[in-house]
Design a protein around this nucleic acid. Sequence first.
RNA 1: GGGCCCGUAGCUCAGUCGGUUAGAGCAGGGGACUCAUAAUCCCUUGGUCGGGGGUUCGAGUCCCUCCGGGCCUACCA
Length: 534
Amino acid sequence: MPEAKGKFYLTTAIDYPNSRPHIGTAFEKIGADVQARYRRQQGWDVHFLMGNDENTVKIVERARELELPPQQYVDDMARQFQEVWRALEITNDDFIQTSEPRHHAGCQQFIQRVYDAGDIYKKNYEALYCEGCEEFKTASQTNDAGRCPNHPNRDLKHVEEENYFFRLSAYGERLLALYREQPDFIQPDSRRNEIVSLVESGLEDVSISRRNFTWGIDVPWDHEHKIYVWFDALLNYITGIGYGSDAAMFNRYWPADVHFIGKDITRFHCALWPAMLMSAGVELPRRVFAHGFVYLKDKDTAEAQKISKTLGNVIEPMEIVDKFSSDAFRYYFMRECPFGGDGEFSFPRFATSYNADLANNLGNLFSRTTSMVLRYFDGTLAGSSAIVPDEIVDDQALAAIVASVSRDVEACRYSAALETVWRQLLDPANQYIEQQKPWQLANEKKPEYDIEACRRVLTNLAEAVRVAAVLIWPFMPSSAATMYAGFNYPVPLGEASYATIVPRPPMSDDLRVTAPLGESGKIEPLFPKIDAKD
RNA sequence: GGGCCCGUAGCUCAGUCGGUUAGAGCAGGGGACUCAUAAUCCCUUGGUCGGGGGUUCGAGUCCCUCCGGGCCUACCA
């Protein structure tokens, strides 16, 4: 049994349900899921929260277009989002919608505490409104003539509204102290640098309420106002684990061990959010990890382009999952796109990576191993329980691999973790087969004939399959399960933490192939090769 | 304007506190093998580490500068 390691609470950003999730949104969830699965596998008490951000004006507009009540609209979108997350085998423990009562209650309680602390005050919010874009513009978004670049022939409308403001400006020094004392609070470092320089340049107070909204959360002491976007949205991280509704749950999991977010919203999570928590007297999260974006590589121009509806290049995650598999999708993004930086997606690249790493290397290793055990030993390696399978990687090397993969996963260097498994374990396993030539050891007509040696070689290979399955489980749970079910390994996969890799668990029975056989009497390919052309 | 990041083999990228002949995968070339998903294994072609200057016994790795690309600059994933 995995040893208990304490709690681990992680979150992803909540999404605007204006449109369906695309592969960029999925990237974040997969990265978080790998972390969640890894932590659970090692015995942590994990809570993994995801959700949707529903208290925005655009939701009301969109619902009106569809002639639906807002609640019905957001509920349906929440269902659609979760359908995608299920298909990608994301294992979030909860899914919060910010229209839920638990969020409203916690939100109001929190803002009241900030108000009582004296950090909220009323003043006029002045802004420039572009009637063409139907949105507010900041000074930096206007052109030299002080007009909207998209509508240069119209004057911007100067609007004034009485709003509540949060005294963010008072927290600059405390935030800088936080970044100093907790250098990994913001990851990766380049994002940290940006935030430090932003905070050093001075923070302004932020408006946190709007009047005349019909949808959203009331400011508790002034029902003419609704709580405005970020102040509301960020709070999902605590209301989702019971702040204001379930103290036991909240105390069990808060503070968050890591918030996974997109690099574009680093500011809100690394400056506004901790300041809010300081004001309300709530403990701060331990780490914020800002991942990069996924760009699409254009087939013709080879340019990396941003994913957007207007460009018409949105790829639905389901498209790839249905065509290939959830694991193939997860592998591509975790191996080819460094989590902290930007990545690229294109079908040719996907096919190359899939065929080389998954079909030819991992999948084929599994096929040739099981097939030889079936062919030469009728599926049972009699006497294998007495064999110590340490010829591909010995215990010391194995311990080093496990330590390296663990370190990389914990630091969200997913790409590096997978590379280690391929280079340090799978490559040596394939090389080992060529060196040992088990097909000759099993052939009575060959001078090399040595059935005991062959048995030992295949036992070693079955061991490599076991180790690989346990290591890659957080990344590719289905494939890992299929591989692990290939033999009668002693520890059930559900209990196979990294700690069960070395020292090797004792075998009470001899190894035998337990994988289901296909029509041909052979094992079905784990990853059937795919055609490179789209 | 201010700030951050990047520019390493055809492609995608590793290169820790500066240290010996700069690495990997894929692609290309040659060979071997047949258990396996025409898979695998071995050998091999290929780089003035964007340009220039500097610090140093020694720089892809630090400093300056120039060129090229991306991003942030406040309430817009």
